[in-house]
Simulated assay, not measured.
Amino acid sequence: MTTYSPAEAAAQSGFSIDTLRYYEREGILPRIERSAGGRRVYSDGDLWMLGFLRCLRDTGMSIEQLRRYGELSRDDTTMPERVALLEEHAASIRTRMAELDGILARVEEKTDWYRRELRRTRDATS
């Protein structure tokens, strides 16, 4: 089994070492195995979980929701609750995407206006 140091896990996940410790302390991550010397060692499964947590965090999932997901993921009988939590999060992502589409449209409208003004200014000075 391949294992990773905290620094390697941090580099691969994009989280800081402090965040990894915080996530473990808060129950977002399961307990991380330790080496004979007492150092944390991350498995491929831990890195997969970190990657998924990164995805959830990057899409706006709150720490409270991450904590709930972490708790649920340690109990095989909670799949329906996990599905519900992820469906709720997916709905919030879709809502945010629709909001961002509207914002993008406004930015593009303004950019187009500037381009027209630039062309008009160039045409007037030619």
Rank of each mutant, 00 (worst) to 15 (best):
A105T: 15
I32W: 01
G60I: 00
E109D: 07
C55I: 01
I17R: 03
P80S: 10
T111L: 15
R54Q: 13
A11H: 03
D75W: 11
A90D: 13
L118R: 10
S13E: 00
L118Q: 11
W113F: 12
A90Y: 11
R116T: 00
K110W: 01
A98Y: 09
I28K: 05
E109T: 13
G27E: 02
S92W: 07
E81Q: 15
R74Q: 15
R116P: 00
W48A: 14
L20N: 02
I103N: 05
L47T: 05
S16A: 02
Y42V: 07
E117C: 07
E88C: 13
A105E: 15
T121Q: 08
R21S: 03
D75H: 06
T77I: 07
P80D: 10
D44T: 12
R119S: 07
T125H: 06
A9Y: 07
I28Y: 06
I93D: 03
L29D: 01
A11D: 01
R94P: 04
D76Q: 11
T125C: 04
R54N: 06
D76T: 05
G27D: 08
S35D: 14
P80M: 14
L50K: 11
D18I: 01
C55W: 04
S92E: 14
R57Q: 11
K110C: 00
R94Q: 15
R82Q: 14
A11K: 08
G60F: 03
E99S: 07
S16W: 02
S16H: 02
T59Q: 06
Y42L: 07
M49Y: 12
Y22Q: 04
R39K: 15
A9I: 01
L104F: 13
E64L: 13
T78L: 08
D18H: 05
R57H: 11
R34P: 10
V41M: 14
T78G: 07
V83W: 10
P80G: 05
A11W: 01
V107N: 06
Y114F: 14
H89K: 14
G45I: 01
L53R: 03
L118F: 06
L66T: 02
L29I: 00
T78R: 10
D44P: 03
E71F: 01
V107Y: 06
E71H: 14
E81V: 08
I32M: 04
G51S: 07
G14E: 08
R39S: 09
R106S: 14
Q65D: 15
M1C: 08
E33H: 02
T59S: 06
I17V: 09
Y4G: 09
L85D: 08
R39I: 04
D123R: 09
E26S: 10
M49N: 06
E8G: 03
T19M: 03
R34I: 09
E109R: 11
E108F: 05
R31N: 05
T95C: 00
R40M: 05
E33R: 12
R74N: 12
L47Q: 10
D123I: 08
A84W: 09
R122D: 00
D112V: 00
L100C: 02
Y69P: 15
D76Y: 02
Y4N: 07
R40H: 05
E81H: 12
T121K: 06
E117A: 10
R116E: 04
D18E: 12
R21I: 02
D44Y: 10
R94E: 14
R82N: 14
E26A: 12
A84P: 03
M61Q: 03
A36C: 12
L47V: 08
I32P: 12
R40I: 11
A124P: 03
G102Y: 05
Y23N: 05
S62N: 10
L104C: 03
